[in-house]
Every structure is written in structure tokens, then in C-alpha cells.
């Protein structure tokens, strides 16, 4: 088991750097995880991260990219519901990177 240290506190992660316990997450942890992914967090980034956390709380899974894109479009406006928009924010894949920063497990069927 690996771990990360944020503000003097240690958090368990898996070998790919995903947080093991969803409940460990807070904004500082999110910021730390973003740094490990070289993502500079903006309001737009946080909007997606918060959306993902809400989605997970409701459905107990991280959405597939296609599902995330559609759901973001519905919730935050059609101009944001495109894979271009999400990939611009999270260049290595919104599912993979955004889920990691949001403290969620890697999405099922993540391709």
C-alpha cells in the first residue's frame, strides 16, 4: 500500500495514486492530487470535481467519460458537455485524472 502526506497527515492510496478511502478527501488533498497530475486547478476544474463527487455520492460509481460528458452538459450547460472541454481541463483523460483528484476510485470500464 502506498500513501501520500498532506498537511502532516498521511492518506492511503493504491499503487496508481488513487485515494483508498473516499472519506479521506478534502480540498487540500484534492489540490495535492492535482499537483501530482500537473493540473493547475481553476474554478472550472473544481466545478467538474464537485460534480463527480456528487455523482459518486448519488450512484456509488464514477461515471464513464461518455456518461460524464452528457451529465455535465445537462447540469452545467451544453458548452461544457463536450469531451473537448473536459480534455482541455484534464488532458490525460477526465475520467482518469478528474476521478483521481476527486478522491474517487478509478471508473469501471475506464477506456
Amino acid at each position: 500500500m502506498s500513501s501520500i502526506e498532506v498537511n502532516g497527515k498521511s492518506y492511503e492510496t493504491d499503487e496508481e495514486g488513487y485515494l483508498v478511502n473516499l472519506a479521506d478527501w478534502n480540498e487540500d488533498v484534492g489540490n495535492y492530487l492535482a499537483k501530482t497530475e500537473s493540473v493547475e486547478m481553476t474554478d472550472q476544474h473544481w466545478e467538474v470535481i464537485n460534480f463527480l463527487r456528487d455523482y459518486y455520492n448519488e450512484f456509488q460509481i464514477a461515471p464513464a467519460v461518455r456518461v460524464l460528458t452528457k451529465a455535465i452538459g445537462k447540469k452545467l450547460g451544453p458548452e461544457k458537455g463536450t469531451s473537448q472541454y473536459l480534455y482541455a481541463l484534464f488532458p490525460y483523460g477526465p475520467a482518469k485524472q478528474a476521478c483521481k483528484i476527486a478522491g474517487l476510485p478509478k471508473p469501471t470500464g475506464c477506456v
Binding site: 450512484f59 456509488q60 460509481i61 464513464a64 456518461v67 451529465a71
Partner: peptide
């Protein structure tokens, strides 16, 4: 155990 029943509600979105 993980309660996976809420996930059935996500199927519509898939």
C-alpha cells in the same frame, strides 16, 4: 459491504 443498489439508478444515464 458496499451498497451497490444506488448504481441501478445510474443505468438510465448509461
Amino acid at each position: 459491504n458496499k451498497n451497490f443498489s444506488p448504481t441501478y439508478r445510474a443505468l438510465d444515464g448509461y
